[in-house]
Write a protein that binds this DNA or RNA. Structure first.
Length: 767
DNA sequence: CGCAAAGCTTATCTG
DNA sequence: AAGCTTTGCG
C-alpha cells in the first residue's frame, strides 16, 4: 500500500532508474558514497541527482559539482541543461582545476596574486625550471636535475601540500634526495615557487595548493564558500589526490552534504598523486556515511564483464565488488597477433573493414585503444590506406604546438608583462636582433636592480646597451606597450589580429613554403578564427571563470589555459574510428574495441613493472580498457616493434594470460610464416631496411622456463657473483644499489646484455 | 649575431 | 624517428 503510494507520487524521472540508482539519487542530505562499476549508469545518477535537488527547490547557485576531466564536466553540464534548462546556468560545475582557478581569480589578491594571473602549463613550468637549473646549479651537476625530474618532484610535493618551507623540514623527502644525490631539489623548489610568484603565474598544481592555502589562511573566505556550497558532489573520487581531498573537506565542513562517486577498480591516476587512501579515510571520517553500490553493468555482454571481473581479482588492493550484466553471453574476446607495429596497424584496419561489412557497422562504432600516444602512427597510416575515416584524440594538443604557443606567448605578454617565460619565448622570435648575449644582460640587470625584465627593457638606453641594441629592444617593448594601451578598448580578436600582423609572426610563417611551414601557417589562421569565434559567440553556461559578456583578451586566455584536446570527444557527430589512449577513453563506450600493443614493457609499461603498486595500476588500466567494449573486444600484440628508432622483440603481455580461457579465443600466429612477402612489400619505407635489421643475428630469448627452477635467497648477493635467471639465463653481478626492499642488482647477462633487477621481485639462483 | 650541420636525447598516462 | 641543443663558421 505504502509502496503504491510512493510510486504514485514519484517523479517520472525516478522511474527511469534501478533501485540502487534511485536510492543514491534521493539521498541528498549527509555524506554519501556511491561505488559505481563501469557501465553502471554513473553519469545518469549524478545528473539525475542534481536534477532532483533542483526540483526539490534547492538553489543551483548552492550546488558544487567537481569532475576530474573537462570531458566529464561538459557531458554532465549538457545533460543537466536538458533536464533543467534555465536553472542549470548558476550551477558551479567543472574540473577541480577550473573551479579552483575561478575562486583564485576572485580571491587571489589575498595571497598577493593579481586576478589576471597566468596559468603555466607543463611546458611553461619545465622551461622555467630548465633556466633555473642552468643559472643556479654548477654545470657538472646539471644533468642530475633534468627539468622533467625536477618538475615531477615539485608536483608531487605540491600534491601533498608540502610548501618549500615544509620541504626543508621534511626528513623523508630530504633523505630521499640525499640518497639520490639530488640534495638541491628543495632549493630549486623554493626558487621555482618564488619565480612563479614574481611572474604572476600559477602552475596546474598551484591551483590546488594555493586554493588550500587561501582557505587555511583566510577564514572569512573559507566561511564564504563553505556556506555558499550547501551541496557538493565529486565525480571520479578515486582519482583525487591529497590536496584535492583536503580542500573538499574544508568546503564541506559546514553542511556536510558531500557525495562522492567513484570506483577503486578504475583508479588510474596514482602516478600523479591520486590515492585510494581518500576512499578509506572518507568512510572513517563520516560515521553516518550512506554507501550505495551500483553493480549492474548495462554496457557489455557476459564474456566482457566476466573477463573484467577475473582480471581485477588479480589485484590485492581492492574493495570487493562484482559487476554483472543481463545483456546475454555475447562474443568471446579475440586475440590478434602481428609481426610488427605496422603489421598490427594493418590487421586492425582490415578487421574494421571486415566488421563494417559483416555487421553493418559505421566507423564511429570502433575504437582503437593504446597505452602510449606514440603508438597511434601505425593505425593512422593503416586506416588512411583503407580509406577509413579516423580521428586521433589527445597527443600533442593544438595549444601545445610551437606556432600556437608562440602566438599565445605574445598575447600573454600583453596581458601580463611580468610573465618572463612568455617574454623569453618571443623576445627574439621572429629574429629582431636581440640575441643570447643581450638577453643574458637584460636578466642580469633585472636581478641586480630587483626589477622585472620588462622594466629594464623599457629603459634599455639607460642600462648600458649599445645604441643599436637599445633601439632594437625599445622597438620591441614599444610594440608590446602600444598593445597594452589598446587592451582596454579592443576585444580579443582585434588584439590577436593586430599582434599577428605587427609582431612579424604571420609573415615569418607565411614565408616558410615547406610542408610543415604551410601547416603551421594554417594553424595560426585556425587559432585566429577560433579567437574570432570566441569574441562573437554568446558564452552562456559552458565556460568556467569567464563572465559571459567579457570578450577581452584576458578573458580569452583564461578560457584556453585549462583546455585540452580530449575535451571535444563527440564520437556521435563524426563518423570516425576513434584512436586514443586508454586514459583518454575513460568514461566512453564503443560497440567494438581493440586494445592494442598488449606486450610486456609496453603494457604493462616498463616504468611500472618493478613495483607492485604500479603494476596493479596497470592492471586497473587494462580493466578500464576492457570495460569500454559493448559487444566485441579484440586484444592485439606484435612480436617486434620499433622503439627509439630501433627494432626490438616484444613478448605478449602478462595480462593476456590472465584472461579466462572460457571467454577467450586465442589466435594461431600463422603470420610468422609469411614474414617477408606480403607485409614487407606493402610498406616500402621500411621494407628497404629488412636485410639490415639484425632480427636473425640477435640472440633468441631463452627456451621455456625450467620446471624445477628454485630461486635462492638474494640477501647475500654481491658484486662479482654469477647467477641464473629464469628468463635471461646466466649473468654476472656488476653493481648493487639501494637498500632493504629497494635493492637493485645490475647484472651483465651473457645473452641479454645488462639488466637492472629489483631483488624484491627477481628470481635468481646463485651459481 | 645568425645560420646550418652535427650531435644528443628521448617515449607513460593528464589538468 | 623526431625534436632540441650545441658547435662551428661566415
Amino acid at each position: 500500500m505504502i509502496f503504491l503510494f510512493i510510486f504514485a507520487i514519484m517523479k517520472d524521472y525516478l522511474l527511469q532508474l534501478n533501485e540502487s540508482q534511485r536510492k543514491a539519487v534521493i539521498q541528498i542530505n549527509g555524506p554519501v558514497m556511491i561505488i559505481a562499476g563501469p557501465g553502471s549508469g554513473k553519469t545518469r545518477v549524478l545528473t539525475f541527482r542534481v536534477a532532483h535537488m533542483i526540483s526539490e527547490g534547492i538553489d543551483p547557485f548552492r550546488i558544487l559539482c567537481l569532475t576530474f576531466t573537462n570531458k566529464a564536466a561538459t557531458e554532465m553540464r549538457q545533460r543537466i541543461a536538458q533536464l533543467h534548462h534555465n536553472d542549470a546556468r548558476n550551477l558551479w560545475m567543472g574540473t577541480f582545476h577550473s573551479i579552483f582557478a575561478k575562486i583564485l581569480r576572485i580571491e587571489g589578491h589575498r595571497l598577493g596574486y593579481s586576478s589576471n594571473f597566468t596559468i603555466y602549463d607543463t611546458a611553461d613550468s619545465k622551461s622555467l625550471i630548465k633556466k633555473l637549473v642552468k643559472d643556479l646549479i654548477p654545470t657538472s651537476k646539471q644533468k642530475l636535475y633534468k627539468e622533467s625530474i625536477v618538475y615531477n618532484r615539485i608536483s608531487s610535493a605540491k600534491n601533498k601540500l608540502i610548501t618549500p618551507e615544509d620541504y626543508e623540514q621534511n626528513i623523508d623527502m630530504l633523505n630521499e634526495d640525499i640518497s639520490n644525490h639530488r640534495e638541491k631539489f628543495g632549493f630549486l623548489y623554493a626558487a621555482y615557487s618564488q619565480q612563479c610568484f614574481h611572474n604572476g603565474a600559477m602552475d596546474f598544481d598551484d591551483l590546488l595548493l594555493k586554493t588550500y592555502q587561501l582557505l587555511q589562511r583566510c577564514p572569512d573566505v573559507a566561511y564564504k564558500y563553505q556556506n555558499k556550497f550547501k551541496y557538493i558532489m565529486i565525480d571520479e573520487f578515486q582519482d583525487t589526490n591529497h590536496a584535492q581531498y583536503e580542500i573538499i573537506k574544508i568546503l564541506a565542513a559546514v553542511h556536510e552534504n558531500l557525495c562522492v562517486v567513484g570506483d577503486d577498480a578504475q583508479s588510474i591516476y596514482a602516478f600523479r598523486g591520486a590515492t585510494i587512501a581518500n576512499i578509506l579515510d572518507f568512510a572513517k571520517k563520516y560515521d553516518d556515511l550512506q554507501i550505495y553500490k551500483l553493480e549492474q553493468n548495462y554496457r557489455s555482454t557476459y564474456h566482457i564483464v566476466n573477463t573484467a571481473n577475473e582480471i581485477i581479482k588479480q589485484n590485492k588492493n581492492q574493495l570487493v565488488k562484482t559487476i554483472f550484466t543481463e545483456r546475454g553471453e555475447g562474443n568471446p574476446i579475440i586475440e590478434l597477433i602481428a609481426t610488427t607495429d605496422n603489421d598490427e596497424g594493418r590487421i586492425i584496419a582490415d578487421k574494421v573493414f571486415e566488421l563494417k561489412m559483416r555487421h553493418q557497422l559505421s566507423n564511429k562504432n570502433f575504437a582503437v585503444l593504446y597505452r602510449t600516444n606514440a603508438q597511434s602512427r601505425a593505425f593512422e597510416e593503416a586506416m588512411r590506406r583503407l580509406n577509413i575515416a579516423y580521428k586521433i584524440y589527445g597527443g600533442l594538443s593544438f595549444y601545445q604546438r610551437k606556432e600556437i604557443k608562440d602566438m599565445v606567448a605574445y598575447l600573454r605578454c600583453i596581458v601580463n608583462p611580468l610573465d618572463e617565460v612568455a617574454l623569453l619565448r618571443i623576445i627574439n622570435y621572429p629574429p629582431r636582433g636581440i640575441g643570447d648575449a643581450t638577453i643574458n644582460k637584460l636578466l642580469v640587470k633585472s636581478r641586480e636592480q630587483n626589477k622585472s625584465m620588462w622594466e629594464i627593457m623599457q629603459q634599455a638606453s639607460l642600462n648600458g646597451f649599445s645604441k643599436r641594441t637599445a633601439e632594437d629592444i625599445e622597438t620591441f617593448s614599444y610594440l608590446l606597450k602600444s598593445c597594452q594601451i589598446m587592451l582596454a578598448e579592443k576585444n580579443a580578436f582585434a588584439m590577436a589580429e593586430y599582434i599577428a600582423k605587427h609582431s612579424g609572426i604571420m609573415k615569418e610563417l607565411y614565408n616558410d613554403k615547406s610542408v610543415e611551414g604551410v601547416s603551421r601557417y594554417e594553424n595560426l589562421i585556425e587559432l585566429l578564427n577560433s579567437i574570432k569565434e570566441f569574441t562573437e559567440s554568446d558564452v552562456a553556461i559552458d565556460a568556467d571563470g569567464v563572465l559571459p559578456d567579457d570578450k577581452s583578451l584576458g578573458s580569452y586566455l583564461q578560457q584556453i589555459s585549462l583546455l585540452t584536446d580530449t575535451d571535444n570527444i563527440d564520437p556521435n557527430t563524426l563518423d570516425t574510428v576513434s584512436l586514443m589512449t586508454i586514459h583518454a577513453a575513460k568514461g566512453l563506450e564503443f560497440p567494438v574495441v581493440f586494445v592494442v600493443g598488449m606486450e610486456e614493457n609496453l603494457f604493462p609499461s616498463i616504468m611500472s613493472i618493478s613495483s607492485l603498486e604500479e603494476l596493479e595500476e596497470e592492471r586497473r588500466l587494462f580493466y578500464v580498457a576492457i570495460t569500454r567494449a559493448q559487444d566485441h573486444l579484440f586484444i592485439s600484440h606484435a612480436t617486434t616493434r620499433y622503439k627509439f628508432g630501433k627494432l626490438e622483440y616484444s613478448e605478449p603481455s602478462r595480462f593476456i594470460a590472465e584472461i579466462p580461457n572460457g571467454n577467450f579465443k586465442r589466435m594461431k600466429s600463422d603470420r610468422q610464416a609469411n614474414l617477408g612477402d606480403r607485409h614487407f612489400t606493402t610498406i616500402p619505407s621500411r621494407s628497404n631496411n629488412i636485410f639490415t635489421r639484425n632480427i636473425n643475428n640477435r640472440p633468441k630469448p631463452s627456451p621455456a622456463p625450467l620446471a624445477n627452477f628454485k630461486a635462492d635467497d638474494t640477501t647475500r648477493l654481491e658484486v662479482g657473483m654469477k647467477i641464473l635467471h629464469i628468463k635471461f639465463g646466466v649473468g654476472k653481478v656488476s653493481a648493487m644499489d639501494g637498500v632493504g626492499d629497494n635493492r637493485i642488482a645490475v647484472i651483465q647477462f651473457e645473452n641479454e646484455g645488462e639488466k637492472k633487477l629489483m631483488l624484491k621481485f627477481a628470481k635468481l639462483k646463485i651459481i
